[in-house]
Every structure is written in structure tokens, then in C-alpha cells.
Amino acid sequence: MTHNPFDSLPEVDEPTTRRLHARLVSTATQEGLLDIAYRTLDSPVGPLLLATTTTGLIRVAFERQDHNATLTSLATLISPRVLHAPAKLDPVARQLDEYFAGTRHHFDLPLDFRLSKGFRRAVLTHLPAIHYGTTESYAQVATAAGSPKAVRAVGSACATNPLPLIVPCHRVVRSDGSYGQYAGGETAKHTLLTLEATQAKTQQH
């Protein structure tokens, strides 16, 4: 007699699971237990992972940066109370959509810079001062951040920028005018700078 009466039941009940997940997000929010909410967003530079704390947006990651590994790292460094809660990132998704459509030239969002410290943070704080459609060299950024000799450190600050796109590290290029590296890949950097150059020009005329 090996018959198990539970075998006939479905393993996963999709509609109920979804409903329960939504209820968990809502009660967790009420109880102050949702430390990190995330979603993904399709974009011209590939799927983006967006994560926010109650302070503000804490992480934007390209697909090549591995979304799962990024979430694990957030769980380890910030808090494991992480849930997929797209609605919490609606304003971020909307502003990014507008940016890619060319209608938004700067972001107006609360940011959480906890993942970045010291000089790297000083560099990231300066980056939004580089205007849409323009670029600066790594050396210029080093000077602006208060350490003219720290050109390499500017490079690593850009490479480890936890908030690419929003904090425009793509506007930092090599002194010879070539793009240089980018967390989202050189193609993505090219796409972004071309978009911005085109939009900025259109606006001038």
C-alpha cells in the first residue's frame, strides 16, 4: 500500500501563490519588515535590476553584472529581508523609461549611497554635475573630487558605481576621447552617450 492521497494535489498553485506574495509584501511594508524591494526593467541596454531601501534607490545592475548575485550581495551587505515588490520602484521605472525615451535629462529620486564609501562616494557625488549630453575625462573628475592624482581611483569608483545610469558614470571617458570601460559594457556606454548627444543637439535647435 504505497498510495499517497496527497499525490493528486498540484505542487504549485500559481494564482494563490501570487496572491499570497502580494499580501506578504503589503503586510511586511506595514510592519516595517521590507528592507529591500526590487524589480527588473527592460531597457535599450538590456534588463536592469532595480533595488530600493526605505531611504531610496540603492542599486541598479546590468544583466552582465548577474542579477541573482547582486541580490545575494545586497542580502549579505544590507539586509536579507528582500522581496520582489515592483510597485515600490514605479517612480524609478517611470523616470528611466523617460530617460531612454529622451524626454528626461536628469533624475529626481531619493538615493541610498550606503554601498559606496570614502573617495569613491566623493566621486559619485560629483558625477551628477556632468551635464546631460556632455562628458568629462577621468582626470577632470579626479580634480573635481579633490584628488587630481587619483585618476585610477576615479576609474574604480565608476566601475563599482552601485547606481549606474542614475549617477552618470557613463559620462566619464578617457582623455583621448575614447569611451573607456563601463559596468554595462562598452556597447551600452556608446548607446547612452549617443542617445544623450542626439537629444541634447535636438534641444539646441
Partner: peptide, 17 residues
């Protein structure tokens, strides 16, 4: 490393239901 809680819900949610 620590697993994000979402992964716990995903892996165990249906069985707990």
C-alpha cells in the same frame, strides 16, 4: 553570503501552502 528572503518564499512557499 545570505539568501534573499524572496528566494525562500520562492523555494518553500508552495510546499508551506
Amino acid at each position: 553570503t545570505v539568501k534573499p528572503f524572496e528566494q525562500v518564499v520562492d523555494e518553500h512557499g508552495p510546499a508551506v501552502l
